[in-house]
């Protein structure tokens, strides 16, 4: 860059790439007003006793006290934890295995890829309804196995309080792993062919190559995948509504549903805002340290 000695450096820095900066103003405003503004607004009103309509009558931490003593909210949190941990593990493991298997230069790879990715094209509501039918004891898997002669076979997750969250997990995995597989496959394809050749020359077995060489090299892909899976976990809502509507007996409630139900069904905005603030907080607790480690700690080119 040529420098004109007389001109002050600062403004030229500021007006560099002026067009790009102007172009990003709408997005900056949207982010500030809609996202940040909405967040602040929600947090402020979570300290009020707003019912059907928002009003500024502060009641301190009342909404939060009520929230954390509500059995339904505690069940919701517990369900989200179970679903979250298992969905994270299984999505990654199954997604990576499928990708690794597809990466063996098999025949009809395109066909398999399409089949695995197809569920992702369906909305959560359709996925949920489909699995509600498949898991229905009178029409679905249980009925089919029983009609084949195994009379005592019992597989009834959606009507059993203790395991209903796993019934939802199955549907969630079926829908989501295809995308994870695709991301992983892209990552695998990005690994240089020479690495494989070198590993083969050194006589390292294939599983070891994957575990100790390929996977560490795929770190950025794994991080992208993690963010995608995690955001899917926290917003879990439509799947539950379509499959069980929170039943049986509230055993499959999730935080997002609590927020919706208290804001709109119970006409208690304050309680809904308190719950959504807690959701935001839990996301922040996970995301902020990670983002700090990833982007803040050491500046990379």
């Amino acid at each position: 860059m040529s420098t004109s000695g007389t001109a002050n450096r600062r403004p030229s820095q500021m007006f560099r790439n002026l067009n790009a900066k102007i172009a990003s103003i709408p997005m900056i405003l949207t982010a500030l007003l809609v996202f940040l503004g909405g967040t602040v607004w929600t947090i402020v009103y979570s300290f009020t006793n707003s019912k059907l309509l928002p009003r500024l009558k502060f009641v301190g931490l009342d909404q939060y006290e009520r929230l954390w003593s509500a059995p339904r909210w505690l069940t919701s949190i517990e369900n989200l934890l179970v679903y979250g941990v298992l969905s994270l593990i299984f999505s990654l493991v199954i997604g990576f295995l499928l990708a690794a298997l597809l990466d063996q230069k098999i025949r009809f790879e395109g066909v398999f890829r399409t089949i695995f990715l197809y569920p992702f094209a369906l909305s959560f509501v359709v996925t949920g309804l489909t699995w509600q039918w498949i898991l229905n004891p009178d029409f679905g898997v249980q009925n089919i196995v029983r009609s084949m002669g195994w009379e005592s076979f019992s597989f009834n997750p959606l009507y059993d309080q203790d395991i209903v969250i796993y019934g939802i997990l199955i549907a969630g995995l079926w829908q989501g792993t295809g995308l994870i597989m695709c991301l992983m496959l892209a990552g695998l394809r990005g690994i240089d062919e020479d690495i494989w050749k070198a590993a083969r020359v050194d006589g390292i077995p294939m599983w070891k190559t994957y575990l100790f060489i390929v996977i560490p090299m795929m770190r950025p892909v794994f991080i992208t995948t993690l963010v995608i899976i995690a955001s899917g976990i926290v917003r879990l809502y439509d799947l539950v509504v379509a499959q069980t509507s929170g039943g049986p007996g509230g055993a499959s409630e999730v935080p997002a549903k609590y927020v919706y139900d208290y804001m709109f069904l119970a006409q208690n905005l304050g309680q809904g805002f308190a719950a959504s603030t807690m959701m935001l907080l839990s996301v922040a607790i996970i995301v902020v340290p990670w983002a700090y480690l990833e982007f803040g700690g050491h500046k990379r080119g």
Binding site: G247, G249, G250, A251, L265, Q267, N268
Partner: peptide
């Protein structure tokens, strides 16, 4: 009752009847 109270009762009884 307000809808808020009714909803809390709903949460309780739907759990009671199925648990």
């Amino acid at each position: 009752n307000t809808e808020d109270t009714n909803n809390q009762l709903n949460d309780l009884f739907v759990e009671f009847f199925k648990t």
